[in-house]
């Protein structure tokens, strides 16, 4: 009974390499296994992605939208955005924002995972449960909570900061200045992202063999040195992946800013995703919006090149 199933076990099939139905099965099996997922992605995303790229080479405004037909204008959309000072400002802002948010997320998330190792067991359970609570709050809800906490008139944040004598924050307007405004948004995003990072890193730490740590400690290494010399290299793959995913997620940040600023962020708050949305839905230049999206994807490919290469390399090894 030649089977497709058996070829999942490379060891078994390696034993008898014959030119039989087994071999054919072995060649076709992965494609059969991949087919459902690939079909789903291909059908649902493939055609829209093709439309998106096509749109980016077209004049596609409200007029064209209603008639379901764009007008080919070559690379004019790309030329337009690349010559637009606004685009470069938004790109720079998004890059800085992503860098700050991802760094804070990773550092604080890892620090909390290390802290989990140090606290008593009951507290570890409490903190993990707390993290799970935070994780389970939907993004939209999280934005509403934070918006409510920093509310200008009735926010608990202003009141508390004033009572703590950090300054007079009564009627402090966090969003009057884009720096403090982005501070609040960054806090919100980091707060929401920490549970995923902490729990993952903690689980990674749990897999670091104790013998290695003890050996290093016996050799007289300080805790920080142990972390740097032993733990960090072991956890490197996790860090690379978490960082790459965080970059992908934070670079596209939309909902948090959009809802926090009442669906009408002023242009100081534009990030790439909001800029693309603005050009598409608000200015009705869907072609421009599509071009911005394409540029965004290319940019992110560049930013996550390290991860990509590592992924492909491990792909080869195994």
């Amino acid at each position: 009974m030649a089977s497709v199933a058996e070829s999942e076990f490379p060891l078994a099939s390696r034993r008898r390499r014959r030119f039989t139905r087994q071999r054919i099965g072995r060649v076709l099996a992965p494609y059969a296994l991949l087919a459902p997922a690939a079909t789903a992605i291909g059908v649902i995303l493939g055609y829209p992605l093709y439309l998106l790229v096509k749109m980016s080479f077209e004049k596609y405004g409200l007029f064209e939208l209603i008639r379901h037909k764009g007008r080919w204008i070559g690379t004019a959309n790309y030329a337009h955005i690349l010559h637009d000072g606004e685009f470069w400002r938004v790109l720079a802002r998004t890059v800085v924002f992503t860098a700050v948010t991802v760094t804070l997320t990773m550092v604080l998330g890892t620090a909390m995972a290390l802290l989990l190792l140090q606290v008593s067991r009951w507290l570890r359970v409490a903190i993990t449960t707390g993290l799970v609570l935070v994780w389970s709050v939907p993004v939209i809800v999280a934005v509403d909570i934070w918006r409510w906490m920093v509310d200008y008139e009735f926010g608990v944040a202003n009141w508390t900061l004033t009572k703590l004598h950090i300054g007079n924050f009564i009627r402090h307007d966090w969003f009057a200045n884009p720096w403090t405004g982005f501070g609040v948004i960054t806090a919100l995003i980091v707060w929401g992202a920490i549970p995923f990072i902490t729990i993952t890193v903690y689980a990674g730490l749990a897999q670091v063999p104790q013998e290695l740590l003890e050996a290093a400690a016996i050799d007289g290494a300080k805790p920080w040195a142990v972390f740097r010399e032993v733990t960090l290299p072991l956890l490197m793959p996790i860090f690379v992946i978490l960082t790459s995913l965080s970059i992908i997620w934070d670079f596209q940040v939309f909902q948090q800013i959009w809802v926090m600023l009442d669906f009408r962020p002023t242009s100081d708050y534009y990030t790439m995703a909001i800029y693309a949305f603005h050009q598409s839905f608000q200015i009705s230049e869907y072609g421009l919006g599509a071009a911005i999206a394409v540029v965004m994807v290319l940019f992110m490919f560049g930013a996550t090149l390290v991860y990509l290469r590592q992924m492909l390399r491990t792909g080869e090894v195994q």
Partner: peptide
Amino acid sequence: LGVQMVPLAALIIPLYIL
């Protein structure tokens, strides 16, 4: 990996057409 990089806001109209 690449699929995760496409901003949803820009995909809405093409998705809707499909």
